[in-house]
Design a protein around this nucleic acid. Structure first.
Length: 426
DNA sequence: CCAGTCTAATTGCAGCGTAC
DNA sequence: GTACGCTGCAATTAGACTGG
């Protein structure tokens, strides 16, 4: 019978560094323990009791209703990204769960703990959890396999490995219908994340299909914050295919929702996106207006967002041919970087490159791009940024009359863009 | 009651994969 | 290679059931 006691025994045996022989000695044979652990045997309760005693765990099979419902509430709070509630429940559950023998609940908790670490950005803890779960994935039921794929994807996303994240999300979607009877909040949360990841990867086709699907659900269920985020995703994708009016419309819808919810997070993203849109349209005054709005929302509070808004100002002032203002804003960015050590590399590199753009491209620029920037984006498979910087280096060689090198880099940038399209069309 | 039969739990051992 | 941890398989054992 599979009440899942086997996995639990195995988990604790490994935790306490025992071999099967050591645990089984005097109770059952090693090979029978092997079977028990794999749920391939239905051992007599006496033996199970002895094994559990040796491991110092309680063999109670009946689970506390309290814990079960608490775990469900915790999973729900994670799905809704309610971190305050999730944190409280997490503390409580962790102390209780080890005493409970119900493998179903047991793995669900382990898996959701991974997601909890990802949401709270505890990278090291998440990494460790991921490693542990990896060893046990062969025991996962289908439902657990689904969560495993989904949360692994979230982890990869956090690590900026967007391509891996995208594949895991898609695989999770493939098995979703085998496990859950209907398309619920869980499903559309997954769809939303596929859209989000596809957007980062510039997979425009996937991004627009998935963001539309999740938008419809969130709108109909009055999940306004998510709906706003879907509008932003749609806007970004319209912008990329140069449907600027449609993009602006999406951003305005998101703005309306953001105001109604008085959510600075949403409003920041909207203003930053509109700023970017006007920047792309060479409408510098408008772009600055929105970047300024975005900046006002986050300055001296959220340093990463602040940096993003500052960078918007710098590139727009460069475009606007106001180098002095651009230099002022660049200084702000550099000051911010000094006080905040843990900024994502892609923004750090952007600051460094913008400095060269404002003060002249020197040989150090070539060194920075060849040795650090280009390899970084290549290894992360962030091909859009990669292609952008490769092209920039091409420009540098071109301006220095190194035409052969320039041509090579232009070709490489072109190839990277073609590759993205191919991946999107798969 | 008991010999015979059937089923399921349990064991011993050969052999597999991995780490050193 | 060999030591170790683990698993698959055939054999053994224990217990339940049945017909005489």
């Amino acid at each position: 019978m599979s009440d899942g006691i086997g996995e639990k025994i195995k988990y604790f045996r490994i935790k306490y560094n025992l071999t099967q022989e050591e645990l089984a000695k005097g109770i059952v044979s090693v090979s029978y323990l092997s079977k028990i652990e794999r749920n391939a045997a239905d051992p007599n309760p006496e033996a199970v009791k002895k094994l559990c005693e040796r491991l110092g765990i309680s063999p109670e099979k009946v689970i506390d209703e309290d814990i079960a419902s608490q775990v469900m509430r915790w999973m729900e709070s994670l799905l809704k990204c309610d971190l305050v509630l999730a944190h409280d429940l997490y503390q409580d559950i962790q102390t209780k769960i080890e005493k409970v023998i119900d493998a179903d609940l047991f793995w669900l908790v382990k898996l959701h703990t991974l997601y909890y670490f990802v949401l709270t950005k505890q990278k090291d803890k998440a990494k460790r959890k991921l490693k542990l779960l990896k060893q046990d994935q062969k025991y996962f039921s289908e439902k657990e396999q689904y969560y495993w794929l989904k949360f692994k994807a979230h982890f990869e996303y956090l690590e900026s490995s967007y391509e891996k994240a995208f594949l895991h999300f898609q695989e999770a979607e493939r098995i979703y219908s085998d496990i859950f009877k209907e398309e619920s909040e869980e499903y559309y949360d997954l769809i939303y994340h596929v859209a989000k990841t596809a957007t980062v990867l510039h997979y425009s086709y996937h991004a627009s299909v998935y963001s539309e699907r999740s938008l419809v659900y969130y709108r109909d269920h009055y999940r306004l914050e998510r709906a706003a985020k879907c509008h932003i995703l749609k806007g970004v994708n319209y912008k990329r295919i140069r449907e600027m009016d449609e993009a602006l419309k999406q951003f305005e819808l998101a703005e309306g929702l953001g105001k109604r919810l008085s959510s600075d997070t949403i409003l920041f993203r909207v203003y930053e996106a509109i700023g970017e849109l006007f920047h792309d349209l060479n409408m510098s005054t408008q772009a600055i207006r929105y970047y300024a709005k975005a900046y006002d929302l986050v300055k001296h509070q959220f340093s990463l967002q602040e940096l993003i808004a500052i960078l918007g100002h710098v590139k727009t002032y460069i475009q606007y041919e106001k180098p002095d203002l651009a230099k002022d804003w660049l200084t702000k960015a550099e000051t911010l970087l000094k006080s905040e050590k843990d900024m994502p590399p892609r923004y750090v590199y952007q600051v460094k490159v913008l400095r060269f753009a404002l003060y002249g491209f020197t040989q150090n620029f070539e060194k920075l791009l060849v040795k650090e920037v280009i390899p970084y984006f290549k290894s992360r498979k962030l091909y859009i940024a990669y292609a952008g910087y490769v092209r920039l280096l091409g420009d540098y060689y071109y301006n220095n009359r190194k035409y052969k090198l320039a041509a090579e880099y232009y070709a490489e940038a072109h190839q990277a863009m073609v590759d993205i399209q191919n991946k999107d069309n798969k």
